[in-house]
Every structure is written in structure tokens, then in C-alpha cells.
Computed example of a mutant assay.
Amino acid sequence: MSDYEVRPAVMRDAKAIAEVHAAAARATYDGILPEDQLRALAPATREAKWREAIEFSEPQVQVAVCGEQVVGFVGYDRSRDAKTPSTTGEIWAIYVLPEHWGKGVGVALWDAARDGLEEEGCTTVTVWVPLRNDRAIRFHELAGFKRQMTTAKTTSVGAVKIEEVRLKRNVA
């Protein structure tokens, strides 16, 4: 794990975060989304969103770097779900370049998010994951998250409907 450092994102990271987001999303949704929609998952469609997130800390963003290269990121903050206590945090997004999967980057990002949420006074944390994203569900379950099956919902990614489930765990 010593090859990776996790630090708060700065404005110059926005483009790299968008590139990680696009590459990881394409790999994640391969076989789930049609080819034309996979091609539409382009960095240019995400860079402005991540610039705004970094500028306003909503969500708070941390990046994992290997040397000078951003290889992953996590966005976290208070839960966006209605009727959740103010002590509930949420992992809004966590993505790692596919060539760095399985090397501890996700764990380092999760640790940084957990520390940040704890500093914000959060006692529980949730994350929404597509039911067909076995890798992400396995990652979060290994990190101590439990599925809340009654929370399953359908969201749209382009023209495709995707079933998501919320997972939850204590911050500490």
C-alpha cells in the first residue's frame, strides 16, 4: 500500500478525477449498459461536476495518488437520503482505475472517508450500489457494510434502468 497516498483533492485534480470516474464506470458497466452509452461515459461530461465538488466541498473529495497520478477518488458527506439523521454520512462515489483494482486503493480511500465522516460527527455511513455490480458489493461487504434490502430502488443510467441497494455500517 506504500505506493499510494490519499490526500484532499485540489482544483487541478478535477480532470484526473473525471478520467478515473469515466474509466472505472466504463469497466463497471461493461455488459450492463449498451456500447453507445458506455462511450458516453466520457471525462468531459464529469469534469465540471468534480470542479464544483472540490470548490464547495459537497461532497468532500479525497484522491489516491501513485507518484503524481490520480488513480482513485472518494466523495463523501452527509447522507442525501430523505429522513436520515444528521449523524448519517454517505459515500457519494468511490472509484479506482481498473488497473489498480485489488491493490488496496479502495481500502485507503474508504479509510480516508471514514476518518472524514467521523470528524464531521457521523456515526453511521451508507452507500448506494447497483445490484449487478458484484465487485462493489463485495468490496463494501468486506469493509463491514450490510445490505438494506428494503431500500432497493431503480435509477436510470441513460435509457437503462439499474436496480440499486443501500448498504450501511457504523463509522467507527
Rank of each mutant, 00 (worst) to 15 (best):
V160W: 00
G104A: 05
V6R: 05
A40R: 08
D36C: 00
T150I: 02
A143H: 13
Q62A: 04
R138Y: 12
T123Q: 13
N133I: 02
R78D: 13
Y95M: 07
R46W: 11
A159L: 14
H100Y: 07
A136W: 09
I91T: 03
R169S: 14
H140G: 01
K15T: 09
T28E: 01
S156E: 15
T150Y: 08
P8V: 10
E118C: 01
W101I: 00
C66W: 09
W50A: 06
G102D: 07
G144M: 11
M1I: 04
E90P: 01
E5A: 09
H140K: 10
V61Y: 04
A48Q: 14
V127S: 09
D81M: 10
G116T: 03
G106I: 04
D134F: 01
L109Y: 13
V129W: 04
L167A: 02
E5P: 03
A53T: 07
K168L: 11
R132Y: 04
E99L: 05
A9M: 05
T151P: 08
P130A: 12
E35P: 14
P59S: 06
R132G: 12
E5G: 02
H100A: 01
R26W: 02
L167K: 05
V74M: 10
T126M: 12
A14I: 07
D3W: 08
G106L: 13
K153H: 10
Y76Q: 10
N133H: 12
Y4S: 08
R132M: 06
V20W: 02
D81H: 09
R7E: 09
E164Q: 15
R39D: 07
R46L: 11
L33K: 03
K168W: 03
E141T: 12
T88H: 10
A53I: 05
C66L: 04
R132I: 02
L38I: 03
C66G: 05
S2D: 15
L109V: 09
V63R: 11
A93M: 08
T28C: 05
S86C: 09
G144H: 02
L38N: 00
H100M: 07
T87S: 13
W110N: 09
A14F: 06
E55A: 10
A25W: 14
A24Q: 06
G67K: 15
P130W: 01
I54Y: 07
R166V: 01
Y76N: 09
L131A: 14
H140S: 05
E90W: 04
H21F: 08
W101D: 00
D13A: 03
R135Q: 03
D111E: 15
A136F: 02
E90R: 09
A143P: 04
L38K: 05
Q69G: 03
Q37A: 06
D77N: 13
A108M: 15
T124E: 15
I32V: 11
Q37Y: 10
K83H: 15
R132L: 08
I162P: 06
K83V: 02
G158Y: 12
V70K: 14
T28G: 08
E58N: 12
R80Y: 01
A93L: 10
E118D: 09
S156K: 15
D30W: 03
V63A: 03
V70Q: 00
L131N: 15
D3C: 11
A143V: 06
P98K: 02
L167C: 06
S57M: 01
R7V: 03
A152D: 14
R80D: 10
V63I: 05
F145E: 03
G67E: 07
A152S: 14
C66S: 14
